[in-house]
Design a protein around this nucleic acid. Sequence first.
RNA 1: GGCCCCUUCGUCUAUCGGCUAGGACGCCAGGUUUUCAUCCUGGAAAGAGGGGUUCGAUUCCCCUAGGGGCUGCCA
Length: 513
Amino acid sequence: MKNFRVRFAPSPTGALHIGGVRTALYNYLLARKMGGTFILRIEDTDQTRYMPGAEEYIMEALRWCGIEPEEGPGLGGDLGPYRQSERKDLYGKYAQQLVDNGHAYYAFDTAEELEALRERLKAAGNHAPKYDASTRLVMKNSLTLSEEEVKSRLESGEPFTIRLKVVPGHTVVVKDLVRGEVSFQTDELDDKIMLKSDGMPTYHMANIVDDHFMKISHVIRGEEWLPSTAHHVLLYRALNWEATMPQFAHLPLILKPTGKGKLSKRDGDRLGIPVFPLSWKGATPEDSFTGFREFGFDPQAVLNFLAFLGWNPGTEQEIFALDELAEAFSIERIGKSGARFDFDKARWFNEQYIMATPDEELAQKLRPLVDEQGYSVNDDFLTAFCGLMKERVTFLPDFLEKGYYFFKPVESYDDKNIRKRWKPERRPLFEVLQAALASAEDYSAAGVEQVVKDFMTANELKFGDVLPILRITLAGTMKGPSVFDMMALLGKAEVNDRLTKGMDYCDRAKLIA
RNA sequence: GGCCCCUUCGUCUAUCGGCUAGGACGCCAGGUUUUCAUCCUGGAAAGAGGGGUUCGAUUCCCCUAGGGGCUGCCA
């Protein structure tokens, strides 16, 4: 469907929240599924909250995830510009048209006056103070002021806003693709500001104008927008664009892992989990966050995890490559209720992706971290290493933390197990094994295994007598890959060296104990 | 407070009136294994409550409760 056009419209006010990434993902997936177009639009209409670097962050995050838009700032597309600050005149024009057609009006109320109105209404027992049909007539606007007065205020350059004139007594029905029909009474709707006193449009105005001219067919966004959709429908009507109004789909929100409310950036450091795709360095430490990428997540795993937060294919398949997601995705199967951010599940997805990634590829991804640590190993070594460790890690950095001893000497030994298993009187015996290993011709895993087995049968020893000792002297820990694989990868000289050092350590540990 | 949305295991969810309520994560137990992990097997674990409608409700309707969102010259 060539005319299936969707957009992701974030505001560059800071790092892009993971919920935003999911919204982008759903838009992207639907665009691909429908053979449509995925558009990025930057909604930078709030001068005060604008954050330099945020737009770049958004682009980089989408690129990292592999869900890049086809149209957007710097990406081309015939219906740009795709940055709202560059479309300012357009919004002014249509806001004016709204006024001319009687669907909106000028308002001159100051912030103080607005605040006074709220206070007055609250004092009168109204818990939902609104600027609407019931109050607009006591405020300073082109509905209450004389024509001359309005004209002179406008001409004298007095700041003004343009408000939508909501007519009470009607019902607005929003057809939502995930929620069905949702009705709102216009009596409940306030006269939303369309054009701010700085000449910039509000979200509502800019959104409708842009979606119209960018020929957006489906608006897929977070549930927080559902309440204002009634205003949006009213706007389409006032602008006479209802015939081509896009269809709406409001996504369930992502909730906190624990506690109440929707997931927030605070939950990140509160629980030690990422809530942003990429790390973000804000002005202060409190405003800086570690991203999924820096945590060592595979972007595909993140996408897979995110896709299932609010959607499911209806089958029991859970692991989906991006292409498969695009194929299987559908609006009909998007859920209605908010989904808790389940970090354990995210970890599981990442483990699945790491295990499914070919060793060579893992080695490539690990290379920068290896170099950063100053370890010098070749690609073959790294590839083999990844093969040995991939079933034991959750995140990329885990490889180097859990398997550090493949790159440098053992830093700490498991004393508890040494006391339990090391028998000093057997050292001469192990030295026989050490010698046998040192003269082994075949140092492959199978080769050393044979040497060890021969040694065991010759001395009537069991695996349990020998392997733990080898493991602990070579790695310091009881955890890790097959001892024979470890030995083969470490190599003859290194193994010989570690055996000596390890047994020395064991003797000492035993003496102290 | 008002308006809107939502409500199946702890969590993510399947179920589109017939259910012994299925799967996944996590958890527990067992098995495989030289360790850890992987893997395999098994287990505990759910239809918020109350009314209807119906031969029959988790499934449809209503009420209550709970949760979420909105209620800015922020998006």
